[in-house]
């Protein structure tokens, strides 16, 4: 599953939850090619090609968050498009409201759409300042938190930093296992709708833990500066790590692997040290 779909998926699940749709009839299609001939309840189209064939009717509502949704037959309810591609062919019918928020759409002249609304976003100018503002703000926030922590509770960052440096493979393994398992568990929880708040909370805690890991790595990088002002060194270290992540992210595959590896090492180091409260010591084995 494309990880970029997860935020949209959670938004859609929130919309479904707010709309009072029965969870048991909700279906998400996240990969492959599918022809839907009968489906009662909400349908989420993810990284898949989903077609409603000619002379077939589904109830809806339908949420398109990726892939392609082709309507040759009839959708009785609303269709909301957040991303991906929507194609309504000649003879295709949408009985409810077609709400276009994002993505590309192709509507045949003869298509029968009961109501159509478009949420307009003012196209953003290609402004590098605006593009990098969130990253800069995040970097500044993490730097300040890192500087504060390194002055108030340096031992926390020391434990995380030394673990990341001394046991990178263990940290990476733990980080990778945790992220894969818990990401799947939280997405799965989101589908139950009842556990949606837990899922969102879990994902937020995950993000905070990753951010804490970045601060730990920043502390480690700051120590290389050899300055007695540890808070300044940590702040600059965090900036360095964030710049490295940005630069690495710009390089396809290898850069992503490096950036992902760094984040997972940080995450693993945070977890195995109980958020820095305890120094990590692997079990003692005879040499």
């Amino acid at each position: 599953m494309n990880l970029e779909l997860i935020p949209l998926l959670i938004i859609v699940l929130l919309m479904i939850s707010a709309g009072g749709v029965d969870v048991e009839t909700t279906e998400a299609v996240i990969e492959g090619d599918h022809e839907i001939t009968e489906h009662r309840g909400a349908l989420i189209v993810g990284d898949a090609t989903v077609t409603v064939p000619e002379d077939e009717t589904i109830s809806g509502p339908v949420y398109v968050i990726g892939g392609e949704f082709q309507v040759l037959g009839t959708v009785e309810g609303d269709v909301t498009q957040l991303s991906g591609s929507l194609v309504v062919e000649e003879g295709g019918e949408i009985g409810g409201e077609l709400q276009h928020i994002g993505g590309s759409e192709e509507l045949a002249d003869e298509a029968d759409i009961a109501e159509r609304t478009t949420v307009e976003f003012t196209p953003a100018e290609p402004d590098p300042v605006a593009a990098y503002t969130p990253v800069v703000l995040t970097t500044l926030l993490l730097s300040f938190v890192g500087a504060w922590l390194s002055r108030k509770r340096p031992v926390l960052l020391e434990n995380i930093g030394t673990t990341a440096r001394g046991h990178p493979v263990i940290s990476l393994t733990v980080g990778a296992l945790l992220s894969v398992t818990f990401l799947a568990v939280f997405v799965f929880m989101a589908f139950t709708l009842v556990l949606l708040p837990v899922s969102i909370l879990g994902l937020l805690i995950g993000l905070v833990t990753i951010a804490y890991g970045i601060i730990g790595l920043g502390y480690l990088a700051g120590k290389q500066l050899d300055t007695p002002r540890v808070e300044l060194a940590t702040g600059l270290g965090v900036v360095g790590i964030m710049v490295l992540l940005q630069v690495a992210g710009a390089v396809p595959i290898l850069g992503d692997l490096i950036a992902g590896g760094l984040l997972l090492i940080g995450l693993g180091a945070v977890v195995v040290t109980y958020f820095g409260l305890q120094k990590f010591e692997p079990v003692s084995l005879p040499e």
Partner: peptide, 30 residues
């Protein structure tokens, strides 16, 4: 297998057991 080997070598064995049961529980749930 490599992840399990790393965990087994560096952590108490019960963590590996816990992971296995957790993974099976989640798998069957899926």
């Amino acid at each position: 297998a490599v992840a399990a080997g790393i965990l087994y070598t560096n952590f108490d064995r019960n963590w590996v057991f816990l992971w296995v049961f957790g993974l099976f529980a989640f798998t069957h749930l899926l």
